[in-house]
């Protein structure tokens, strides 16, 4: 555990909590892509199956449980509790265009051809592109609420911090996981356009961030 890994995890946790609280407090999931949230729930479920097979640390287990719990709670709020506020017409990204290629890639390129390992790889690849329905939705409506941009910033920052964590681990531990690094790079690059807008349009008078 190094400082980049820890701040990355906390940034990830902050993103998840921000989104959950935003929906809960405003009693609305307007502007939030339910499809992205379902993909994140799938990501956590397929990645954290090792909860059943191996114990790494109390920190590891509790964070996994929190991530999974929050992911399903978010999906529940969007599709059940506040379903009336869900903007399904603008959430029109075709997720099969992500899930099918990512599934194929996970079967082809993995560390070990076993079910658990393929599902782990699938989750890593899927996570890297799972935000696309959300970004697509924002570009379609042309705007995002400020709190939604904070969510996206924390979520993007988390994988960027993980990149620094992997550089650290390579130098100090000789640890190298090319699948995670490659997917992490893709994931971070997808946020770059958003990062730029978030920083340049930031400020006290900001109400909304427009995406091209």
């Amino acid at each position: 555990m190094n400082v980049f890994r820890l701040t990355g995890d906390l940034s990830h946790l902050a993103a998840i909590i921000i989104l959950l609280l935003k929906i809960w407090k405003s009693r609305s999931c307007a502007g939030i892509s339910g499809k992205s949230q379902i993909l994140f729930a799938v990501v956590f479920t397929t990645r954290y199956l090792d909860l059943l097979t191996s114990f790494i640390s109390l920190y590891n287990t509790s964070m996994k449980l929190i991530y999974i719990g929050c992911a399903y709670a978010t999906v529940y709020l969007i599709y059940v509790k506040f379903r009336a506020t869900y903007d399904g017409n603008h959430d029109s990204f075709r997720v099969e265009f992500l899930v099918v290629p990512v599934g194929g890639l996970a079967v082809l390129i993995n560390h070990n051809f076993s079910l658990m390992e393929i599902l782990w790889t699938f989750s890593i690849y899927l996570e890297s592109v799972a935000i696309l329905p959300q970004l697509f939705m924002i570009s379609k409506t042309g705007e995002a609420e400020t709190i939604t941009t904070h969510y996206l910033f924390c979520l993007g920052l988390y994988r960027a911090l993980y990149l620094l964590n992997w550089i650290w681990r390579y130098y100090f531990e000789g640890f190298l996981d090319m699948i995670a690094i490659f997917a992490g790079l893709v994931q971070t690059v997808l946020y770059c356009d958003f990062f730029y807008l978030y920083v340049t349009k930031g400020g006290k008078d900001r109400k909304k961030v427009m995406l091209p």
């Binding site: 890994r5 790494i56 640390s57 993980y162 995670a180």
Partner: peptide
């Protein structure tokens, strides 16, 4: 090596 160790990251 990554393919032998459990995945200790989130």
């Amino acid at each position: 090596k990554a393919d032998e160790a459990p995945h200790d990251e989130l």
